[in-house]
Simulated scan of single mutants.
Amino acid sequence: MMDMVLQQPLYKRLATGDWLYALLIVLTAGYSLKLFGSAMDYYEQLILLGCGAGLVALGWFWKSWRWFFPLAGAVSLAAIALYDHNLARAGQSFGLKFIFSSQSSFMWMCTLFFLATGVYWAGLLARSAWLQRMASGLTWSAAVFALAGLFTRWYESYLIAPDVGRIPVSNLYEVFILFCLITALMYLYYEAKFAVRAVGAFVLLVISAAVGFILWYTFDRQAHEIQPLIPALQSWWMKIHVPANFVGYGAFAMSAMLGVAQLLIQRGILVNRLPPAEVLDEVMYKAIAVGFLFFTIATILGAMWAADAWGGYWSWDPKETWALIVWLNYAAWLHMRLVKGWRGAPLAWWAAGGLLVTSFAFIGVNMFLSGLHSYGTL
């Protein structure tokens, strides 16, 4: 029966809800183009239309996205309405001060991710399906606040000044939030598809570690303050290169934690509380395959951006070099699985160790090495 359904044309497999969601995205994209099209160049208009098409496809592919994305947009629109074109209202309006401003949304995100981590572990150790469902709900809620906060921060940057306005993926503070969001969403998708809710206790650990960095970076370095873009980042390339990059980072981080869980099972630890090792191995493979695809796209886009900005596709800058190391690491991982037929512990160890390589490429280069990408330092 399922094979017969999949053989039908796409338009016959779509329900009324799919078409209503697509209509919402088309109308929103069209309205945005009408409002801001005159301020966009040709490439930015293409990015907007491409994002609209991508959001429709994602909603058709992943049904949960059809309520998640509009809900995050509605929260952000509530913040925009409360601002009423006046950034000073962030400290005057109760709703903005405690719920809807970008900083408030991010603090809710941090709190909910921490809570979700604890509840996932409680559900795992107690074998409580109810606690695990609650943890999933907390993770979804955190993701809503993360995406809404990014949308709101984008609007806030334009309230400061038109020439300050930009997409909020330009510094470590913003991309760590993006990392938390993407990693959580990828996990939630695989959690539902493969019924691996118990492994959320492990995946949320790496997200909580990123949340800890966000909180330190906020209160110790005041990184939450919106700053103008430096000239090197004033490009439409950033809108596509950075998100694609962090789909890769999020997938690789999730696969590392799946590898850790798989290794524990193989040693008889939590074996009756976690999904079978074979299931985790399959999810780990799919996550790395998706991450590798997007990381490859991001690397190509980065080379094209470099040629546009600096006149050359590749300069062996430390960031570029470590991006290549990450790419080669997961290319070799996929080769060993698909061509050599490796399974089990070797690939699990490799995926877990890959987190160290990815982490250094993500943040270590910014901390210890200098080069053309030194604008991302701590």
Rank of each mutant, 00 (worst) to 15 (best):
V169K: 03
P318F: 04
K34W: 13
P276N: 07
P275N: 04
L20Q: 12
Q132D: 12
T296N: 05
S136V: 14
G212T: 07
A15V: 10
S315A: 14
F360I: 03
K193Y: 12
W121P: 05
F360S: 01
F213E: 03
E156T: 08
N272A: 11
A331M: 11
A210S: 13
F219W: 13
W342A: 07
G250M: 11
L328R: 02
H85A: 12
L338I: 10
M1D: 08
W237V: 05
W60G: 00
A351D: 05
R166G: 01
K319Y: 06
L27Y: 02
M254N: 15
L6V: 03
W154N: 15
W130S: 13
L356R: 00
A223I: 10
A223N: 12
A223E: 08
L125W: 12
A323F: 11
W140A: 08
E278V: 09
I25F: 02
W130M: 11
W333A: 11
Y155M: 00
W314Q: 03
L270Q: 00
L280I: 12
I207V: 15
L58N: 02
A331W: 01
W305P: 11
R66K: 15
W108T: 02
W130G: 04
A210H: 00
L131F: 11
G364S: 07
A331L: 14
K286W: 08
M284S: 15
T152L: 05
R66A: 01
G118L: 14
T183S: 15
F219H: 07
D84E: 14
I167C: 11
S359R: 00
L82W: 10
H85N: 14
G123C: 07
K239Y: 01
G212N: 02
A323H: 03
A22R: 02
M257E: 09
W305M: 02
L293Y: 13
G259A: 11
F106Q: 03
Y155Q: 09
A289D: 03
K63D: 10
I269A: 12
L172A: 12
W350R: 07
V5C: 00
A277D: 14
L33E: 14
F246L: 10
D163Y: 13
A287D: 08
Y375F: 15
W350D: 09
K319H: 04
E282R: 15
G291Y: 08
A79W: 00
I80C: 02
L280E: 05
M304P: 01
G200V: 03
W342D: 02
K97Q: 14
H241K: 08
W349N: 07
M257V: 13
I47H: 05
A289C: 02
Y249L: 10
L33P: 01
L14K: 06
V203K: 07
M186Y: 09
D41Y: 08
P168A: 05
L82M: 12
N86F: 07
T16M: 14
L181W: 13
L77Y: 14
K63M: 00
G200S: 04
F100G: 04
L188F: 01
A223K: 03
S38Y: 10
G250V: 09
E282G: 04
W322E: 06
K193S: 11
A22N: 03
M254R: 00
A122I: 08
F252R: 06
A201W: 10
A244D: 04
Y11L: 10
R133N: 14
H373D: 08
